[in-house]
Nucleic acid binder design. Structure first.
Lengths: 253, 253
DNA sequence: ACACATGGTGTAATTGGTACACAATTGTAA
DNA sequence: TTACAATTGTGTACCAATTACACCATGTGT
């Protein structure tokens, strides 16, 4: 929760800069050590976590707004973004709306209005991100999908919908390319698919099918260090990948 | 184009009733005599066609707004609606914005602002619809997908995106159920699939696969009248259909 | 040297999709 | 009445894809 002074500092001018009633919420996915992660922020002085978000400048394209918001949270310039759903329930930010209503007169309180929020999901290479809190948060960090905190407002709904969308678009969007690092092993890629699809896949059939798509380059090197046989490294053949996605990766996982 | 008087009558109060910056555009699909149709309106005094649309009341849920708008255009109460994309380009309604700018002072001209439009697609039974013009149109009617007029603003983009979405969701949404009448023949259903997928399908394999899903009831009666063998009539088994859609109709069309 | 966990490759059995052939039904024209 | 054209209903052989599993290779710890 903000003090009255903060509220005035931040938002006295907000209504002049940003479009009223419109907000953006982003679900940023990363993948690290075989686990899917989502970027979240923890409210100042509250045990409530929320998704990176913000507002749209009066003349700014939607995509630019999402880019700008995520550049501030991650440090990344060109980020893979997809609009996936609009969250427009009139009561979705009721708690937020009422939180500050006694501090500021309604016409000065940007937070007091109804917001229709456009949901974007983002896919990033985990190692490129520098999580950076915003003005209302003390922590910005990756959270494991198996260990999620309590969400603020309707942000759990937004997150779930993003994950569902990811699952449905797995064969039509360059999801592997954007979530994996430049070089990766086949078991690592399989883990990503298993997490998104939420089911086990057969190791051998997965490998054969993936290679069959013709979208991977097998590298000379192997990943040393594990206590077992060193797996080969692969990279995506971006050109072939994008060509294959146009038709959809013909596959019923 | 409206007169100044009309503009004042309609929109003097609009800013008090509707959310600023937010609009809804709907792509209403119907199916009749083997052809896909889309519901469109023709502007008063202009050769420009547009999609049914409207605005959201200050405290109204988005879905209710879309329902309300379509009830006015079609007469139908409970309509199958799916949100599919947001159109937020700052210049998307430039023509519209400037059309009335000299008639009314900016603060009174609801049309003068930037609109972020939420796109919904709707699926209706052709026979249940009574196309009804709105205040800015002289004609409201079905247009064949093979004979589309010139679109106003970015409405062609919206229409295309809706059709693409329909294609992608064919195995996950009750598209057949909502577009076909209660009783229909197999060739009629096949025509629908062929239109949405934009390709020919094998008659015999289509029939076998459809029946294999277990989502159709074969009726006793046949459709007489054609100059050929009378085809059987079918109806959807809604319960099985919805159960099957949860998993997605496993099929690569 | 050996066990063990993991990665890489091959193969047989099954399933599912494709491409047809052929019979049945209906209205029309000779 | 009969032949015919157009369309629907059903079956089947072939090919491709998926699944389930076997076996070998490689690196680490004992």
């Amino acid at each position: 929760m903000l003090t009255k002074q903060q509220l005035e500092d931040f938002w006295a001018e907000a209504g002049k800069v940003y479009l009223n009633h419109i907000s953006i919420d982003c679900v940023v996915f990363g993948f690290h050590e075989g686990q899917m992660k989502v970027l979240m922020l923890k409210s100042n002085n509250e045990d409530a976590w929320y998704l990176p978000g913000g507002f749209v400048r009066k003349l700014e394209p939607m995509e630019n707004a999402a880019d700008r918001i995520l550049k501030e949270r991650t440090g990344i310039d060109e980020i893979f973004l997809q609009q996936f759903h609009v969250f427009g329930d009139p009561d979705r930010s009721k708690i937020h709306n009422e939180m500050y209503k006694d501090m500021l007169p309604a016409e000065k309180n940007f937070f007091g209005q109804r917001f229709i929020s456009i949901g974007y999901y983002a896919l990033v290479d985990f190692f490129n991100v520098t999580p950076t809190p915003d003005d209302f948060s003390e922590i910005c960090t990756w959270r494991d999908l198996n260990d999620l905190p309590k969400f603020q407002l309707d942000h759990e709904l937004i997150f779930r919908k993003a994950l569902d969308t990811l699952r449905l678009q797995l064969n039509y969007q360059p999801i592997g390319y954007n979530l994996m690092p430049k070089e990766f092993t086949m078991p690592e890629l399989q883990k990503l698919y298993e997490t998104i699809l939420d089911k086990k896949l057969d190791r051998r059939n997965f490998q054969r099918r993936m290679l069959g798509f013709g979208i991977l380059n097998k590298l000379e090197t192997t990943r040393k260090g594990g206590a077992h046989k060193a797996p080969y490294l692969y990279s995506f053949d971006l050109k072939n990948y994008q060509a294959a996605l146009k038709e959809g990766l013909k596959s019923g996982w």
